[in-house]
């Protein structure tokens, strides 16, 4: 459906030199709807809000939107890498929250070293998910639902069901939130950097291409000797790592962490952001850079609802309708006819 324009264009291309045709084809591919839709949707919402309430277009609005988008973006980036391989990671937000608690517990004593150690540990937790998935071949939905439960308990037990405040070295983490470039906090810029990095990984490296291949057609990938297990494990490890960064963003913003506090509700917004960012839920299609716009849109919808005068009580309703409409607009229907 996305390539509806193909037929007339191909006829046209026949009587032109090959090079022009190739360039045109590439342009058309770049401009295909599911690639341009995510930024388009975001800017459209921005425009509507801007007309209704210009204050939201200034530094104030940018700062609010990007601050609340940062953890969503980081979780969504990991999720889109996993979705790209055709699996789903329901445990990533719980990894992030568990990570936030570990950060809050260890940073006062060990500073930067603690940050690195916790990030490594969380990446390993993600990789464990991947190993179990790859070698036992259980459905990722059920597997990560199980690890989600275990991580929730881990978060409750390590924090003793209390809020852990970062007592020492507080500036070290909160700087990530307070330092702002162009009114955008550092945490969001980390997300943008990660997005560019993941995009390059998928676009230019063999590892990344293998992940996409597994997502597009796993049987085909296996028969072509693509190391499908390794691809899945790496995707889940990336998800663990990105969730760890999200945990860091949570601690940076709140200066504390708890099992029921800030960041305990990231799973669904994260998935929504990945999907609004044009990631296909059936695998084989992900564009991390568009996920940035997906996260911005998801974080911006409540703000937009408020700016447009919907009451606080209507937020949930508006949010639900928005998600359906946006994904109906941006979803790619080109991959086969079966939609689950």
């Amino acid at each position: 459906m996305t390539h509806r324009a193909d037929t007339p264009a191909t006829v046209e291309a026949l009587d032109r030199p090959d090079k022009v045709a190739a360039t045109l084809a590439r342009l058309r591919r770049m401009a295909s709807w599911h690639i341009i839709a995510p930024p388009l949707v975001f800017f459209a919402i921005l425009l509507v809000v801007g007309i209704a309430n210009p204050a939201y277009l200034g530094p104030f609005g940018i700062s609010i939107a990007t601050t609340s988008a940062a953890p969503i973006l980081l979780v969504a980036l990991g999720q889109s890498m996993v979705l790209n391989t055709g699996s789903i990671d329901l445990s990533n937000a719980a990894i992030g929250l568990f990570g936030a608690i570990l950060f809050a517990l260890t940073i006062p004593e060990a500073g930067i070293l603690a940050m690195i150690a916790v990030l490594v540990a969380l990446t390993l937790i993600g990789a464990v998910n991947g190993v179990i998935l790859a070698y036992t071949q259980v459905p990722s939905f059920a597997l990560t639902l199980g690890t989600l439960g275990i991580l929730q308990t881990a978060a409750l037990v390590t924090s003793g069901s209390e809020t852990i405040y970062v007592s020492e070295n507080r500036d070290l983490v909160t700087a990530l939130h307070t330092i702002k470039t162009l009114s955008v906090p550092l945490t969001f810029w980390i997300g943008v950097l990660a997005a560019i990095f993941f995009w390059a990984l998928l676009r230019f490296t063999i590892v990344g291409q293998n992940m996409t291949a597994v997502g597009k057609n796993e049987s085909g990938a296996i028969l072509s000797a693509v190391p499908n297990r390794r691809a899945k494990i790496i995707a889940f490890a990336i998800s663990g790592f990105a969730s760890g960064l999200a945990g860091l963003a949570i601690v940076a913003q709140a200066g504390s962490a708890s099992a029921s506090g800030l960041g305990s509700n990231l799973l669904l917004p994260g998935i929504a952001a990945a999907l609004v960012g044009g990631t296909s839920i059936s695998g084989g299609q992900a564009n991390p850079i568009n996920v940035v716009f997906g996260a911005l849109t998801v974080a911006f919808v409540p703000i937009a609802a408020q700016a447009l005068g919907f009451g606080a009580q209507a937020q949930s309703l508006v949010y639900g309708v928005f998600i359906i409409v946006i994904v109906a607009l941006t979803t790619s229907r080109s991959r086969g006819s079966v939609i689950k």
């Binding site: 949930s316 639900g320 359906i324 994904v327 229907r333 939609i339």
Partner: peptide, 17 residues
């Protein structure tokens, strides 16, 4: 043809709303 995962996620919020 929107994946059921997303539609029902939206319906969840709509119902809650």
């Amino acid at each position: 043809k929107v994946p059921s995962f997303v539609v029902s996620l939206g319906t969840w919020y709509v119902g809650l709303g």
